[in-house]
Simulated scan of single mutants.
Amino acid sequence: MGVRKLVAVVAAAGVAVVLGGGLASAATERITRTVSGGQCSTTVPGHPPVDGGSGIKVTMDVPTTAVVGVPTDPVPWEATGHGSVHWGPGSALYAALVAEGATTLSATTTTSVYLGGDRMQERVTLRLTGTAPIDAETVTTTGSGQFPPMTFSHPSPYNVMLLHPGGASSSITPLKADGTPTSFGTLRFGCLLSPMIDTWHRVDVLPAPTTVEHPVTGHARLAGADVALGAGTLALTESTDKAVTGTLALPATATVDQHLFGVFPTTARLRVTPGPVTGSLSSGLSTQAAVVVSDLSVLGLKLVGGTDSCASTTTIALTAAEAFSLERGGELTGTFDVAPFTGCGAFTPLVDSLLAKPANTITLTTG
């Protein structure tokens, strides 16, 4: 199944909310389930009924959680089983099979499993096969496969993922040395079963991760000056464990007006370019950012300009206001230290003296 996306536009807040994803790679656990075929028998014209039986043990690697709207990974399974036939002492049927040249028993054991999620009522048949000599009363069978991805539409604990309706069946075909069947064909065993529905596995379905993009306006107190960082965007994704990742874009060029030695007017034009945002709303967010000076003038004389090589780096630590929420937005405040600049040529010390300062502050307001 392809990627599903559900986009809900919260018009009142002007916020786009995106729920989506691909196959969910969840933690898995290994479980084993055992199936009995009950009391089984078959009849062959001209011979007394023949008793038999079957059983299957299935081992699966199942997810412990799923996410709303996101297909689970396929569930691999491996199984061993048996199909048995009890000829009884002096069996005329056994003697007739040997007289026809039968040398081998080929057995098939099967059971069915119903799926959950969007595949509810869909049934998967587990089929196991094996062979044994004609005089064996039990044939070991093996098989493997996978249950297809399932998608759940609502978050809740203990959603049924795999449901077993009870029972297993078997058939045994006596084969000649050349691999062809005898005139008796395939012995199909009918079994008397007590109806018993068994839930093989339940999964906790978690809410989908939510990605929200807000328009944002930034202001900073940088090197003692009030700086308008302009308009940008803040995109945040909160996962089911409340971890947040995202991006902060502040594309505008800001102007920092200062006075060199407290006397000479200086103007710096710079951009703050944040990297990925990580953290959580409860414990705080952070982003590594570049501070690039595109122009620096003293008394109107341009000393730095025409290049993006005059740059510094910083880590911006952000704290969400108490009223901030992922969907509605709000205010984020933070602090950052600007490290010494590089790439500013002969005026690098001047740039450092003006802009490489600790304890700067930033405020981001959505809306």
Rank of each mutant, 00 (worst) to 15 (best):
A243G: 11
T342P: 03
G130L: 07
S325H: 08
G185E: 01
C40I: 02
T141N: 03
T151I: 08
V44F: 00
V50M: 05
S194Q: 11
T247F: 02
R30F: 01
T110K: 09
S171D: 07
T210N: 00
A323Q: 13
T273D: 13
L250V: 07
G185F: 01
S25L: 14
Q146L: 10
G185T: 05
T182W: 06
T65Q: 14
A96Q: 12
Q121H: 14
G52M: 06
T186F: 01
R119D: 14
R221E: 15
A346L: 14
A346S: 14
H154V: 15
T141K: 03
F152T: 09
G246C: 00
L105R: 02
P133L: 05
S41V: 01
L222K: 04
G52W: 00
D352W: 06
D257N: 11
A102F: 00
A223E: 07
P149Q: 12
G90M: 00
S41P: 01
F147Q: 13
G14A: 07
L222D: 06
D295N: 13
E137N: 14
L248I: 07
F347V: 14
V7P: 06
P265D: 03
H164K: 05
A26E: 15
L250D: 05
V291E: 10
V44K: 05
V18S: 11
H259A: 06
D226C: 03
S286C: 04
T333G: 13
G224A: 06
I31S: 05
A320S: 08
Q39S: 09
F261Y: 13
S169E: 12
G145S: 06
T237L: 09
T307N: 15
P209H: 09
F184N: 08
T237V: 11
V212Y: 10
T240I: 13
L248H: 01
G262C: 00
S25H: 14
D241F: 02
K176F: 02
T125L: 10
S294Y: 09
K302H: 08
T366C: 09
P89D: 15
E78I: 14
